[in-house]
């Protein structure tokens, strides 16, 4: 019973923290630009406001347009329940492994792309086309990063990977791990629509990837999609943090361990978010047809990670 509660609690913590994470990155970028910026909890106000607005739906859209925000949010929440946020081992109640998580996120993106096409707006179509391109090209890197981790740990199950890294801390500094982390970081930037792949705050439609698909959304639908996007960012960063640097994660359900786990994950997310903010301040957005070059760099990194794992055995 406690396991169910802890699992549900962990998921709710992730869902609740997600807007703060996005807000923190935005705030830090503002500070780096010499501005005071909106406080890190601004996204909560944004979401609350959006829930109070009406939703304007286009005549050309079908039920897919209205169903997509729920699916996007739902799949991201399910993935958040799979990922070790605070506790490492809540299996057997974790419904899937890393591959299941990747495909669940793909389900959300699939419907988001369909919703972009649904309204008949050329921007939506453009966003859908670009997003599916980027997602398709990140898939092999994600798979190979997972393989690199799984080869070391012997399985693609999250808890197994975490346990393995904790029992063999030297493995965390091995080339396989570091290369896989670098590859996964680049994939995170691509999948969550961050610079240099996609600018989350652009207003120029021709430079948009993710934003272009949601141009037609308003009100509660938009709130769900924005929240889902923030949650996706949290999920990816938690994966990067807790799979590669799992120290501090709770290994039991004792309240003290859970507290330490929560604090450590928040600290790690803070560090990674700061890294993203600094990176976004430093680099400019790549034009769309340079993005495959970046993604192939991440693929090569992942491939090298796998090969070094093989050689190290």
């Amino acid at each position: 019973m406690t396991r169910y509660l802890v699992l549900a609690g962990q998921t709710l913590v992730a869902v609740a923290l997600a807007p703060a994470l996005a807000g923190f990155i935005r705030w830090l970028k503002a500070r780096l630009q010499g501005r005071r910026g909106a406080p890190p909890w601004q996204p909560y106000f944004d979401v609350r406001k959006l829930f109070g607005k009406e939703a304007v739906v286009s005549h050309t859209a079908s039920w897919i347009f209205k169903a997509t925000p729920f699916l996007v949010f739902g799949t991201t929440v399910v993935v958040a329940s799979l990922v070790p946020v605070v506790v490492a081992q809540v299996s057997p109640f974790v419904v899937g492994d890393l591959f299941a998580a990747v495909y669940l996120l793909l389900l959300g993106t699939f419907f988001l792309a369909l919703a972009g096409l649904d309204t008949g707006s050329p921007f939506g179509g453009m966003g859908a086309s670009r997003e599916m391109t980027v997602v398709a090209l990140t898939e092999p890197t994600v798979a190979l990063s997972i393989v690199a981790l799984a080869l070391n740990a012997g399985s693609t199950s999250f808890s197994q990977i975490v346990a393995h890294t904790l029992t063999q801390p030297s493995a965390a500094l091995g080339p396989g791990h570091l290369l896989a982390f670098a590859a996964l970081f680049i994939v995170t930037l691509a999948e969550t629509g961050r610079l240099p792949v996609d600018n989350p705050s652009t207003h120029l439609e021709l430079t948009m990837i993710h934003e272009a698909m949601v141009l037609e959304y308003s009100g509660p639908y938009l709130a769900l999609i924005e929240w889902g996007a923030a949650l996706k960012l949290l999920v990816f960063l938690t994966l990067a943090a807790n799979l590669f640097m799992p120290w501090g994660i709770a290994l039991s359900l004792a309240p003290m361990a859970l507290l330490i786990g929560l604090v450590s994950v928040i600290a790690k997310l803070g560090v990674l978010a700061a890294a993203i903010a600094v990176l976004e301040t430093r680099v400019a957005k790549l034009r769309l047809f340079r993005v495959p070059e970046l993604l192939s760099v991440s693929f090569v990194l992942a491939l090298l990670a796998v090969m070094s794992t093989f050689l190290a055995r």
């Binding site: 009406e54 939703a55 304007v56 739906v57 286009s58 005549h59 050309t60 859209a61 209205k66 309204t119 008949g120 707006s121 141009l215 037609e216 009100g219 509660p220």
Partner: peptide, 9 residues
């Protein structure tokens, strides 16, 4: 949830 139909933007 108030939904208002309109033209595509």
């Amino acid at each position: 949830l108030a939904v208002r139909p309109a033209d595509t933007w």
